[in-house]
Amino acid sequence: MKSNRKDSSKENRADFLDEFQSCFFSTSRLASFPWTFLENDLESSKSSQLILDVLKQTCLHALCKKFPPSVRYRKLFLVELIRRVEAADCEPLDELYDSLAEVVSAQEAAEGYRTFLLPCGGTVSLLENLALISEGTTGLVTWEAAHYLAEWALDHPQTFAGRKVLELGSGVGFTGVTVCRSCGPSKYVFSDGHSSVLQRLEDNVRLNGLLQEETPPEVSVEKLDWSDVTEERLDAIGADVVIAADVAYDPDVVAVLVQLLSRILRRKCGRVLPEVFICSTVRNRQTYDGFTKQLGDAGISHRVISGAVSHVFQYKRVSEVELIKLYV
């Protein structure tokens, strides 16, 4: 019985450290960390050993040296750890204060890395702007629908395996990198229309090693203006799966988007029509309903894809997210 309890304790500790690491590298809200386990350990042991283990999985981890979260985030994280140690009256830990001193002396930047751990053991690392709106666009950060669509893809890899995928409005690249890393497409085209977003997108795709790999998928990053995409361009892409996340939030661009989707849905890739999936964070119901109405007016039907989606990534789930499949 003692052996079973000891094994269970080790598993709990390992799960705790994994969750802490996942929260840290994805720069989750500090309130979402599993603090209760840490507090109980500090109170019972009066030792800072678990804090040291946390540091090794976060600020002292090799991944943090390569893709560090923002200076501000790391500072807040370390200050919170110190507060918990001092509140429990535990022994001081030099590594903790040394880490804080290093961060305090670092120069703050307008951007930082977020890294998400994949079930396959890989990672998706992205450089994002800290401001939600930067350089006149919202495309320099990852939004909820992109995370949701990536989780749905992980649950349905057969939708992408061996197929040519076009992503509209790729933003910083989270969904696409996840699909390329885990779902086995033969070709993946990242696209966006904003020049600043496109540069960041290409940097992030390269950062994750996708442009350097000789093995499938064949990956490209392309500028795609929805209003003037030629038939020849669509033929050259040859997508049999088209996806997009958070592209219907602006009423001013919805009409152009619907026109493009109508053209895509009526183009055969080989002998079959492409499958098209649109995932949206429904922040404004009127705007979203306007999008679906314009789809209907263009002769495009849609089906809401419901059902549970595996909770893989650490991100805020505040707004309603809806995934639809389009048909003509």
Rank of each mutant, 00 (worst) to 15 (best):
R5E: 01
D7E: 14
E11Q: 03
A14T: 02
A14R: 02
F16W: 05
F20E: 05
Q21M: 12
Q21N: 11
S26R: 06
R29W: 14
L30D: 09
S32Q: 02
P34T: 01
T36H: 11
T36P: 06
E43Y: 11
K46G: 13
S47W: 13
L50E: 04
H61Y: 15
H61F: 05
L63W: 11
C64A: 10
S70C: 13
V71I: 03
K75W: 09
E80L: 07
R84D: 11
R84N: 13
R84P: 12
V85W: 13
A87G: 07
D89F: 14
C90N: 01
P92H: 04
L93M: 04
D94I: 06
D94R: 04
D98H: 07
A101V: 10
V104K: 02
Q107G: 15
A109N: 11
L126G: 08
L127Q: 01
N129R: 03
L130W: 12
L130E: 13
L132I: 12
I133F: 12
G136W: 15
W143I: 08
A145D: 09
A146K: 10
Y148Q: 06
L149V: 14
E151N: 04
P157C: 08
Q158M: 15
F160I: 02
A161T: 00
R163C: 07
L166K: 00
G171R: 00
F174Q: 00
R181S: 12
S182P: 08
K187W: 10
Y188E: 00
Y188I: 00
H194G: 02
H194I: 11
S195G: 12
D203S: 05
R206V: 08
N208Q: 01
L210A: 05
L211H: 01
T215V: 06
P216D: 09
P217S: 09
P217D: 10
E218I: 05
E218H: 05
V219E: 00
E222C: 11
L224V: 08
W226P: 06
V229K: 00
T230M: 06
T230S: 12
R233V: 15
D235R: 05
A239I: 12
A239G: 06
D246W: 09
P251I: 09
G270M: 13
E275K: 12
E275Y: 11
I278G: 09
R285M: 15
Q286Y: 13
T292A: 06
L295Q: 06
G296W: 11
G296I: 03
D297A: 15
D297W: 07
G299W: 14
R303Q: 15
S306V: 10
G307H: 06
A308L: 11
V309N: 04
E320F: 15
E322R: 13
